[in-house]
Simulated assay, not measured.
Amino acid sequence: MNQNGESSRGGQIGHGRDHSYRSSLLLFLAASIWGVAFVAQSVGMDYMGPFTFNGARSLIGGTVLLPLIAFREQKQKKAETRKETAEERKQRRKITLIGGVCCGLAICTASMFQQIGIQYTTVGKAGFITTLYIIIVPIMGLFFGKKVRRIVWAGAAIAAAGMYLLCVNETLSLNRGDVLVFICAVIFSIHILVIDYFSPKTDGVKLSCIQFFVAGIICTIGAFLFEEPTWSGLVSGAVPVLYAGVMSCGVAYTLQIIGQKHLDPTVASLILSLESVVSVLAGWVILGETLNLKEIFGCVLVFAAVILVQLPEKAGEAALMSGADS
């Protein structure tokens, strides 16, 4: 009886770890795509304004998901063993729509605060302040009754230190732009928690598709109100817009939603913070930007933090203790 019970429980734990590792890999892929997208966004700004760029890439991101949704719908219909009732279908669609709208509003608002704020501060300070969601997410989670392991707090602190070394090259002082980017970090934290709430209740791909159409429509309206979008600008900046739309929006944000289903939101935020590391490496490889010793050490700290929070609790605490003893 005990042997069977232990075997069953061990199988469940192993299955859970498999889900955790798979989810971590999906989030790392998302962070890598976003990191390279910083280069695309930097180039895209040469041809159009922030509202136009964000509107175009969001609408592209939503559009490329439509064929995938249709394919999945057909596949699910064939695999169904029980027909959904009309009430169940209505409830599921309602949750998906509400979740998609909430995610779309959050991601649209955060992106625009970041884009506007960066005009009044340095890129390095903006990068560091944005990734403060590493700390903000677990703090917000406490208000929703989410317990955070000590190892995760330690990982968040190490990652924040790494982000500082990686992104900040001058004395940290707050100005108007810094405040706007900090608001962006708070809203990105809300976005992570909203996904954590809705992703287990609905289809992640549909949720992602709706959020992009919501963000794309809002940004497009903003483009016509505050900018002068032109077809020539969109054509000239087609490559960065397509990368940001197809890969950054359509692929990466969908990977985030699917990946977060089996991970604590604080751990997810730590893995997603690797986008800053990848962006520095992408700038180094693609744009020829250089990394100094301080920035390289910052990259190492962030990677170490992400690896630390992936360890089982006892092993992670042992690693912390051995680090303290040495």
Score class of each variant (00 low, 15 high):
residue 18 D to P: 01
residue 10 G to T: 15
residue 187 I to L: 11
residue 113 F to A: 08
residue 178 D to Y: 13
residue 204 G to A: 06
residue 133 Y to L: 14
residue 246 V to L: 11
residue 34 W to L: 01
residue 135 I to W: 08
residue 23 S to L: 03
residue 152 V to D: 08
residue 306 V to A: 02
residue 127 G to M: 12
residue 286 I to Y: 02
residue 243 Y to V: 09
residue 75 K to E: 13
residue 38 F to A: 11
residue 314 K to R: 02
residue 261 K to T: 06
residue 277 V to C: 10
residue 235 V to L: 14
residue 66 L to Y: 05
residue 98 I to M: 09
residue 245 G to I: 08
residue 204 G to E: 01
residue 214 V to W: 06
residue 276 S to W: 03
residue 79 A to C: 14
residue 138 P to L: 00
residue 190 I to G: 07
residue 280 V to H: 14
residue 253 Y to A: 06
residue 307 I to L: 10
residue 108 C to H: 07
residue 77 K to D: 15
residue 37 A to V: 04
residue 257 I to F: 08
residue 74 Q to S: 09
residue 142 L to G: 01
residue 70 A to N: 04
residue 269 S to G: 12
residue 228 E to G: 01
residue 280 V to A: 06
residue 129 I to V: 09
residue 325 D to F: 11
residue 44 G to N: 08
residue 288 G to K: 00
residue 135 I to F: 12
residue 322 S to K: 13
residue 7 S to V: 15
residue 293 L to M: 13
residue 176 R to E: 10
residue 204 G to F: 01
residue 286 I to N: 05
residue 300 V to D: 02
residue 6 E to C: 14
residue 148 V to M: 07
residue 100 G to P: 12
residue 159 A to Q: 04
residue 262 H to F: 06
residue 44 G to R: 07
residue 125 K to T: 10
residue 154 A to V: 08
residue 303 F to L: 15
residue 22 R to D: 01
residue 80 E to N: 12
residue 40 A to K: 14
residue 156 A to I: 09
residue 123 V to M: 12
residue 87 E to G: 07
residue 296 I to W: 11
residue 102 C to K: 11
residue 51 F to L: 04
residue 309 V to K: 06
residue 296 I to F: 14
residue 287 L to R: 15
residue 151 I to C: 11
residue 225 L to P: 00
residue 283 G to N: 12
residue 177 G to Q: 15
residue 266 T to N: 10
residue 110 A to P: 07
residue 160 A to H: 06
residue 237 G to N: 04
residue 205 V to S: 05
residue 285 V to M: 15
residue 171 T to P: 10
residue 183 I to C: 13
residue 260 Q to I: 11
residue 272 L to D: 04
residue 259 G to M: 07
residue 34 W to A: 05
residue 218 I to K: 00
residue 45 M to E: 08
residue 234 L to S: 09
residue 51 F to C: 03
residue 218 I to L: 13
residue 286 I to R: 04
residue 196 D to N: 09
residue 126 A to W: 07
residue 281 L to M: 15
residue 102 C to F: 10
residue 204 G to N: 04
residue 245 G to N: 10
residue 271 I to P: 01
residue 308 L to M: 04
residue 88 E to P: 02
residue 94 K to T: 10
residue 59 L to A: 04
residue 135 I to Q: 02
residue 155 G to C: 03
residue 117 G to L: 13
residue 248 S to M: 14
residue 78 K to D: 11
residue 285 V to D: 04
residue 215 A to P: 01
residue 22 R to I: 01
residue 285 V to K: 11
residue 285 V to H: 13
residue 135 I to K: 05
residue 2 N to D: 02
residue 154 A to C: 05
residue 251 V to M: 13
residue 163 M to V: 10
residue 256 Q to E: 10
residue 242 L to V: 11
residue 134 I to R: 00
residue 33 I to V: 14
residue 153 W to V: 09
residue 242 L to F: 14
residue 194 V to L: 15
residue 318 A to H: 13
